[in-house]
């Protein structure tokens, strides 16, 4: 009998030079993978390990020998012999400008990462005259008890669209609409989420880099000034609904679950959950008033 076993994917190795250091990665890996392997910390916003790179943010750009423009490291596959530079003035200046653009058009204050990079790359936000600098000024959308959408924080990274679409959920409740600076993540005709195809899996919330999409619990606690990440514990367990065995990371503050996500690197969920797993925890804490 011919026994057909698990097909083993054979990937050859390629060697890339990153800032003069030879780095070996597997075929199909990206320049970003090579940079990470070389110990470079590359800023990324629209990149996510579980979504197809749209490479819209361009903050991860690097210099690639032979290329006229900079290239997005998060999506460009590494090729044998590539010579990549990440520490040049050109790279730094471009990243700084992308960060200035992000921070002058959206409220990125709730992204610790972006805040850090703004400082690191020396972004100069003061030179933008607020009176003549257009920003996203959308009002926060509160349409249900599960999550909110604050598009003034949105950097249009497409990750939520990808997670709602073919990268995970296949619901397609939201899409990019409009054009240019008027682009918005939107349902059809901007109808409310309950009126849309949304099934409240919250997989969009899980990938949002700027907290534009937020659990209602987090939003309410922040509003009351009581969101205290430093006082929270994160415990990994398994969802109690159905037999798929999704891993849950329970964020607990004051003996209450305030947020649920799932590890991006677990083969069962790849960070995704359904409405029950992400929001159905409430029954363990609908406690009688003391």
């Amino acid at each position: 009998m011919t026994f057909v076993d698990i097909p083993v994917e054979i990937r050859s190795k390629v060697t890339v030079s990153v800032d003069g250091e030879a780095v070996e990665v597997l075929e199909g890996d990206t320049i970003l993978d090579a940079c990470t392997k070389a110990g470079k910390i590359t800023p990324t916003v629209c990149y996510g390990p579980t979504v197809t790179p749209v490479n819209a943010c361009r903050v991860c750009v690097v210099e690639l020998e032979g290329a006229r423009t900079l290239v997005p490291s998060c999506s460009r596959p590494a090729e044998e012999g590539m010579v990549v530079k990440t520490d040049t003035e050109r790279v730094t200046n471009n990243r700084k400008m992308v960060l200035e653009f992000l921070a002058t058009s959206s409220d990125v204050s709730q992204s610790e990462e972006i805040q850090g990079w703004l400082g690191e790359y020396g972004a100069d936000l003061d030179r933008y005259d607020p009176a003549t600098t257009e920003r996203m000024t959308d009002e926060v959308k509160i349409e249900d008890d599960l999550y909110i959408r604050a598009y003034d924080r949105c950097v249009l990274c497409y990750k939520c669209v990808e997670a709602c679409g073919e990268d995970a959920q296949w619901t397609f409740a939201i899409a990019m609409s409009g054009r240019g600076f008027n682009n918005r993540i939107s349902t059809e005709f901007d109808v409310t989420l309950p009126d849309s195809a949304c099934v409240y899996c919250g997989n969009c919330v899980a990938v949002c880099p700027t907290n534009a999409l937020q659990f209602k619990t987090e939003f309410d606690l922040r509003k009351m000034g009581d969101w205290r990440p430093e006082d929270q514990t994160v415990t990994r367990t398994v969802c109690s609904y159905c037999g798929v065995g999704c891993n849950l990371d329970l964020h607990v503050q004051d003996n209450s679950i305030v947020k649920v996500d799932s590890p991006m690197d677990h083969s069962i969920t790849s960070g995704n959950l359904c409405v029950k797993g992400r929001f159905g925890y409430q029954y363990v804490q609908n406690r009688p008033a003391e």
Binding site: T233, T235, R236, T237, V238, C239, S240, G243, V244, G245, N247, L248, L250, V252, N255, S256, I257, I268, Y281, Y283, V284, Q285, R287, P288
Partner: peptide, 28 residues
């Protein structure tokens, strides 16, 4: 207590994968 969030142990899913459940909350 709720086995998945208030206790330690294991569960086995559909693909016969034994996984740990962990205590995140004190039971009421």
């Amino acid at each position: 207590s709720a086995g998945w969030a208030e206790a330690e142990g294991t569960v086995t899913n559909s693909e016969r994968r034994v996984q740990r459940v962990r205590k995140a909350l004190d039971p009421p």
